[in-house]
Structures are given as C-alpha cells and as structure tokens.
Amino acid sequence: MEKIAGLYSYWIVVVLMMAGLYIMIARYNLTKKIIGLGLFQTSIFYLYITMGKVAGGTAPILIDGEQPVYSNPVPHVLILTAIVVGVATSAVALALIVRIYEEYGTVEEDEIKAIEAAEPEA
C-alpha cells in the first residue's frame, strides 16, 4: 500500500508519456504527431520534477537566517534546459509542416507517401 502511494505519481506520469508516444507513432496527421511530442516531453519534465520533490520542502531559494528543507534543485535546472530544447524542436517541426503543406497540399502521412511513391527517383 505504501508502495502504491509512493509510486502512484510515477505510474500516472509513465502512462501520460506513453499516451504522447502513442500519438506520435499512431497518428497520420503530422501536426498531431507534434502535439503528441509535446505531450510526451511535458510528461518527461513532470517525471524529473517528481524526482526532485522532498516532502515538506520548499522552493530552493535561500532564505536568510532560516534552515528550511529545500527540494532538490538539480532536476529543475535540467528541465529548464529540456523545456527550451522541446520548444525549439517543435518550432522547427511546425515550420517543416507548413512547407510540406505548401509542397504537397496535405499533412497526412499516408497521402504524402502515396504522392512520393508516384514520383520518379531523385
């Protein structure tokens, strides 16, 4: 029981991550894939932050003359970096989607494949 209470949040986060991964693999729409990527990555951020939490802790900002329990700042730093990386990747992906739509007139993966199959070799 203690185990369930202690690990519950990890499990939910894992399920959320896999929901994102599922969208990325299963959906044909390119934009939807990137939405899935966003879901996947945000859930990974959640996983990291969960690891840094200390029960009864406070944000890791030093207070003069007090010695409170602080949560672990390391995952926060890592995730700050990862968030930036995530939005950068999404931005590039979305730009590609716009161009793909211009060139192919669709953003559905299977339709694009059909169009490409009809083209001659490069």
Binding site: F45, I49, G52, S71, I79
Partner: peptide, 10 residues
C-alpha cells in the same frame, strides 16, 4: 512540487 522556475518557464 517547489519547482517555481520550471513552472514559470513551462
């Protein structure tokens, strides 16, 4: 979960 900086950025 005390990650105020991350929350801000997110």
């Amino acid at each position: 979960m005390d990650a105020v900086d991350v929350a801000f950025t997110e």
